[in-house]
Design a protein around this nucleic acid. Sequence first.
DNA 1: CTGTTAGCGCTTTCAA
DNA 2: TTGAAAGCGCTAACAG
Lengths: 349, 349
Amino acid sequence: MPIFAHVCNLHNMQAKPTIKDIAKALNIHHATVSRALRGDSRISEETRKKVMDYATSIGYVVDQNALNFRNKTINNIAVIVPNISHNIFSSFISLITDLANKEGLTVSVFQSKEQFDIEAKVIKTIVRQRVGGVIASISNETRNGKHFEELREFGIPLVFFDRVCEDLNTSKVLVDNFEGTMQAVGYLIEKGYRRIAHVTGQQAINVFRERHQGYLKGIELAGLTYKESIVIEKDFEIADGEKAMLALLNKDEKPDAIFSDSFVLSAGVIKQCRQSGIQLPDELAMMTITNDPYSSLLVPSQTVLEQPLEELATSAFELLMKAMNEASNQPGIEIRHHAFRLIERESVK
Amino acid sequence: MPIFAHVCNLHNMQAKPTIKDIAKALNIHHATVSRALRGDSRISEETRKKVMDYATSIGYVVDQNALNFRNKTINNIAVIVPNISHNIFSSFISLITDLANKEGLTVSVFQSKEQFDIEAKVIKTIVRQRVGGVIASISNETRNGKHFEELREFGIPLVFFDRVCEDLNTSKVLVDNFEGTMQAVGYLIEKGYRRIAHVTGQQAINVFRERHQGYLKGIELAGLTYKESIVIEKDFEIADGEKAMLALLNKDEKPDAIFSDSFVLSAGVIKQCRQSGIQLPDELAMMTITNDPYSSLLVPSQTVLEQPLEELATSAFELLMKAMNEASNQPGIEIRHHAFRLIERESVK
DNA sequence: CTGTTAGCGCTTTCAA
DNA sequence: TTGAAAGCGCTAACAG
């Protein structure tokens, strides 16, 4: 239960000047003030200047809430991610914020903490807020998109990125997980590795399933037999990477390369290798999805498949703007795919 | 110039049910509906149930915008940070988001990108939005808090954290930079280091100035003479850390320990050391402010002064709530200090 | 060029 | 226990 009031009470604050205050002071009608302020061409230059000057002098600032309310317009969007503090999501939010602000939109952030219940609650909040649009990446626990339907009912456009609800007919921004992983596995094989293991996530989530399928395809294409994978079910922590590596080391046949679906997991793998005395990259090669700012600082520096975050954010924002500027009866669904970029470093020899 | 419309046009979307729709369908007055929905005790149980059931059946959701507008209340807060994607800030935002959502408040995020002009623009946007309150950490370029004054004029409470405007009489949440750094330098001296250099930021910003003063005090207390510092003026990048280290190596007397004000800078220092063949930690000890999730993964793992982020976020949020629930004529300013926590790892022997 | 009027969705007096 | 009326700040249609 909230320990503070739900909302900020502004009743006893000094009154902020409104167009009516300006109108009264200048002996004109507040509609005229409104028009002058918005630069309506029919207003005389004289009146316009008078209004502008007075408005500035008393520190008038338009009330965006009243404006939105009156016009049935909304100037903010919501971003829902599993975890705001994870670099990939905070970088994404940073990019979206810049794009949105440039368009006069503000950005509200929400996180599901990888929990379905929180995600559902967040959506309810967003509907109440009547935001203009939503960009979302789903939680690990999410199995279908029913809870997102309410957005559509309220005409709130929705764009998914990266982790998506496949059962929902909305715009989506995706990375070519299957292709990328398959090629990455091919790259490792080309470099001479033969026992490649895959550390991945929930197979119910599109990104991890596609990557695993890409991994299997890559192995199959090369006619190899070794395939081992460790699936981390919950949120990725460093400890999960350690455990995954330990599990792989305890198998009869040990891997000579790891393909990891996350920087955090790779960090754990490295940690475990240090503890187990495995020499990197000599005894074990590593390849990771996502180019974290610190991928190049690990020892050995990590060869990665970089997600083109800027492209993802730009696409997601463009698709959302498209949806927001369209009538709700013209869906205008679009699905965009972006390719990974291979960055070669020391973790693969 | 924006390439999209500034706002989302909802005119041609299906109408969302309002209390009037419910009233009409049930042949009662919309005021009654309003009361029933909010559980007003004067409404008969029969009417209440009828209204509730019908509201649910047609998917009625209160319009928070209209509510805020009508009640002159606001249920969202803004957070301004230099850069959303920097771990310390995204972690902070993550914590604030959780606290705020628990109170029924949403969080809008803004970033200054370390630029004064953007910071000033962001504040104007926030005033227009009439948010309920603001939590901010200032940009490297900010020299005074004049541009924040408008918030006060509009009765919008403001709480600073970490990097603050010292000329502004607002609530602030601070870390004991002077004390912490002084003690950290003492710790290094105790470990036998005698030539400790400081890699820091803009001395106009409270945190960096206080840390540098703490550094100097620590040196002075031990009666040492070596003091070298490199000041990074702009946003911290890995390259800045590299350059700083290079500069220190080119001095006549080389340091035997580095005290770095940022994880990113430390990352650069390590990189440069590798390039210059400096053995860490044997030839050079390192100590860093901020316990990044990856501090322990660097080689050598980094001994750090951890900022108690959770405490900072909790304090900042509490102070903001306090300010939001008070009349604007009762300032209720409070300044809270939090201590660093020393985490010993391998970078100091 | 400017004033009048009405109303967005909701709550809150004041009556009944 | 419910209805009627007013109004938050702003804009837009209509009139002049």
